[in-house]
Structures are given as C-alpha cells and as structure tokens.
C-alpha cells in the first residue's frame, strides 16, 4: 500500500511539472507579445515597455519559467495587472468561497445519489426504480442556471428563507456562510446527483449479476444482505471515478451558478480576468485548478487501492 501510494505521489509530481510547462508555454511563449495582448492594440510604446519590464519579458524563456514556477511553489503568484494586488491574496479569498461550495455540493450530491442509486438497483424494474430513473433524467436535462433561478424565486423571493445572492464572508459566522452557499450548492448538486445516481445504479446492477453474488446467496444471505455486504463495495470503483471528475468540475465549472447567485468565486475570477486580459491571474488560477484536479485524482487513486486489494498487491 505504501509503495502504491509513493508511486501515485511520484506520478502526481511528474504530472504537475508537465502541466506547469504546458500552461507556461501556451500563455507566455505562444506567438504574440503578452504585454501588447494585455494592453490592447492602442497601447503606447513606453507603457508596453514598462509592462514588459514588469512581467520580466526581457529575460530568457528558461529564466522566466524558473522564476515563475519558483514563485508558484513559494506562494508568490505575482501581482495582478488590473487590480494591482497580489494574485495569491485574490485567489485565496475566492478559494474560501469556491472550495466550501464545491465540497458542500459534492456532499449533497453524494448524499442524494447513493441512497437513490442503491434503492433503484435493489428495486430493479419496480415502480421505485422507474420513478427514480425518471427523476434523474429530468435532473440531467434541466439546465442548472434555470434551476438556480427557480430556487431563488421559491426560497428567496417567495418564502424568504435564504437571501437571493451574495456572500457575507465567513467573518459573519459559519452558519451564515453555509446559509448563503446552500441554494447555490443545491443548484450545483442536483444534476451531479442525477448522474451519480445513474452510475451507482448501473454499477450495482452489473455487480449483482456477478457469480460471487450468487455464491453469497447460496450461503444464505438475503438479497438485501448480499447487496450491502458484497455488491456495494465492488460497485464503488466507477462511482469514485465519477466523484473525482465531479469535484474538479465543481471547483472551477460553477461560473454560471456563481453569476446567478453573485458569489465571489474562482469561476468568476477566471471569467473577469480573461475579459480584462489579466494574463497573470489567468495563469495562476489555471495552474491552481490543474493542481486541484491532479490532487483529487491522487486521492481517487488512493481510494481505489483502499477499496480493491488487487491494486494494493500489484505494485
């Protein structure tokens, strides 16, 4: 298990190095001058030169990569050109909204999807299965921004249980923070839960057809016991894969939901900095997201090994 973890860790480090190279190359070395891109076509020559100096564009590409990646490692992401504040600070502020939101949504989606998927699989073909599968069809089909707007209409405007948007900050107390994130988390979680429930159901049904389930039944386990004791853990592998993918998506892909609820999250930061051509912020946030995805994959890999002894012993 230790060897397996170390191997996965090594592959994590290699992935990070490759990813940083690709991002650096695409944004800084690609044809065209980053400075003139950031300032637009009407920029003055001396402003351009000043920016080039500030960005270090006069140095060699290798030196730039080394100082950029060194800065990343030490937590110095540079200074935003538009806002004139350290990028690290901006990202950290946004992360305190996006990360809890993603975790909240993921928790909700898992809490909904597991029971729904397990119930549907155990009642295969029955009324419960049909209605749950019908509901997941809807869940996948409904656009989440529309669903978010409905949530705002019902729970914020009519019932006045939640505010319609914005984020008070964690200084206002944990409960208030969570309360502000609840509607967005539900809007994000529902389509994910629908997908996850379907994966859970089909994975369980596959496993329930396996020979060892029949063996378990022949031992005297009831259908239910066979499902909980033998099928569920075997069915987790594909489910874990989907959970990993969903977390990565939730962390960065919630731009629309952040817009609907006016949340200061990472998605909006990327969106704003792209429209303001603030390459320094874009570069840093993209790198951070890549880092998050790779770390999540690492955790998913460890979870595989925890579930499956064959993976543990192969390495």
């Amino acid at each position: 298990m230790l060897r397996y973890s170390l191997k996965r860790l090594l592959s994590l480090v290699i992935s990070l190095i490759i990813a940083s190279l690709v991002i650096f190359l695409v944004i800084e070395v690609a044809p065209g001058d980053p400075a003139s891109f950031m300032l637009g076509i009407n920029a003055q020559e001396d402003t351009l030169n000043a920016l080039r100096e500030e960005l270090g564009l006069n140095q060699s590409k290798f030196e730039r990569y080394v100082s950029w990646s060194k800065g990343m490692l030490l937590g110095d992401f540079g200074t935003s050109y538009t806002y004139r504040t350290p990028v690290a600070q901006m990202v950290a502020d946004r992360l305190w909204v996006s990360l809890p939101l993603a975790l909240y949504a993921l928790a909700l989606s898992t809490i909904i999807a597991f029971p729904a998927g397990i119930y549907a699989a155990s009642r295969r073909g029955g009324a419960g299965d049909v209605s749950i599968m019908g509901a997941t069809q809807l869940g996948v089909a409904i656009p989440n921004f529309w669903f978010a707007m409905m949530l705002v209409l019902v729970f914020a405007i009519n019932l006045r249980w939640f505010s319609a948007g914005g984020f008070p900050g964690w200084e206002e107390g944990f409960f208030n923070g969570i309360k502000a994130l609840t509607l967005p988390a539900i809007a994000l979680a529902l389509p994910q839960a629908a997908i996850l429930a379907r994966v859970m159901r089909s994975s369980l049904l596959d496993i329930l057809n396996e020979d060892f389930i029949r063996t378990a039944r022949a031992k005297g386990l009831s259908r239910r016991q066979a499902l909980w004791r033998h099928a569920l853990r075997n069915a987790l592998i594909p489910v874990l894969t989907i959970i990993g993918l969903q977390f990565s998506f939730l962390l960065a892909g919630s731009i629309i939901i952040e817009q609907v609820f006016y949340l200061p999250g990472l998605g909006r930061l990327v969106f704003q900095s792209i429209s303001q051509r603030d390459l320094i912020v874009v570069e840093s946030v993209v790198m951070l997201l890549v880092f998050a995805v790779i770390v999540v994959n690492f955790i998913v890999d460890l979870a595989y090994a925890w579930v499956d002894p064959r993976l543990r012993s192969r390495s």
Partner: peptide, 14 residues
Amino acid sequence: GMVFQEPMTALNPL
C-alpha cells in the same frame, strides 16, 4: 451447500 463451476469468479474479490 452449493459449489459452482467457475472458481475464478465465485468469490468476492474484495
């Protein structure tokens, strides 16, 4: 008690 044909898949791998 029952014994099955395919020993490779008759046991829970986990």
